[in-house]
């Protein structure tokens, strides 16, 4: 019996999906991403808004690096990159709007989940970014989403500079939309507001935003391939191994 790493609850037409690995800062494992994809695909048509959040002190610290380091074949990181790309695309493809609630850290794979969200609320102390070049991994998988959301300058800086940015800066860039101390409460409020609107207009508007503003599928495929190309490489094994030495 596999561990429950994703919780999904539906009440009052709102489905809340929660990353449930709080003792590991919700670090992603291939199993967790499988469960996340299943939860996204299981969202009922009667649901009118979806919330994605993390339990415990932080939203998501990215991939479980210890697990990656223990697998020199690179298969674990390949499974994680593919699973992440599938989850982001599945979120975007949902007809319902997706509200993301982040706190603590939304880093690397955790930050990549922003690509599937329509509205992002962050705790003011949240840190965001893609520091994965430090472990020899390319964050290319997030590039199409970022370049379709924010200008080219900050996109390049975020993907190549391993430094993290603060929530206020992310707000200024348009990467997130609201800062709120009570992040989960605010996300629920937004989801309720969305759920109370007539359904056809909301769904048509999300679909239209996807058509105008989202990366093309072939870009998302190329981006995943670019990230996968480094998985299991000597550079990545050396840099990842150095983390634990």
């Amino acid at each position: 019996m596999s561990e429950t790493l994703i919780q999904s609850d539906t009440s009052n037409s709102i489905t809340t999906i929660t990353l449930e690995r709080p003792d590991k800062r919700n670090a992603m494992t291939p199993g967790m991403l499988d469960q996340l994809l299943s939860a996204i695909e299981a969202v009922d048509n009667d649901t009118r808004a979806v919330i994605l959040q993390g339990s415990g002190p932080t939203f998501c610290a990215g991939f479980d690096l210890k697990m990656c380091a223990n697998d020199p074949s690179g298969d674990t990181i390949r499974a994680l990159l593919t699973g992440l790309s599938n989850c982001v695309r599945a979120l975007r493809a949902l007809p319902q709007p997706v509200v993301l609630s982040i706190h603590g850290a939304a880093v690397a794979g955790g930050c990549a989940l922003l690509g599937g969200a329509d509205i992002v609320v962050a705790h003011p102390e949240t840190k965001l970014g893609y520091p994965v070049v430090k472990i020899g991994v390319s964050p290319a998988v997030s590039a199409p989403f970022l370049s379709a959301s924010i200008p080219d300058g900050p996109t390049r800086a975020l993907l190549m500079d391993p430094d993290l940015i603060r929530a206020q800066r992310a707000l200024e860039l348009g990467l997130i939309h609201e800062l709120d101390e009570h992040t989960h409460d605010r996300a629920l409020k937004i989801a309720q507001t969305l759920a109370n609107k007539p359904i056809a207009g909301v769904r048509a508007t999300k679909a239209l935003c996807n058509e105008i503003g989202s990366p093309r599928t072939d870009h998302a495929d190329n981006a995943l391939r670019a990230s996968l190309s480094g998985a299991g490489s000597e550079e990545e094994r050396a840099m990842l191994g150095a983390l634990w030495s």
């Binding site: 924010i150 348009g174 939309h177 937004i190 969305l194 508007t205 105008i212």
Partner: peptide, 16 residues
Amino acid sequence: VRKLGPSVARRAMLMG
């Protein structure tokens, strides 16, 4: 979308 950028425009149009 052109005026606000895709991310901010998405929120403005969905939230009403």
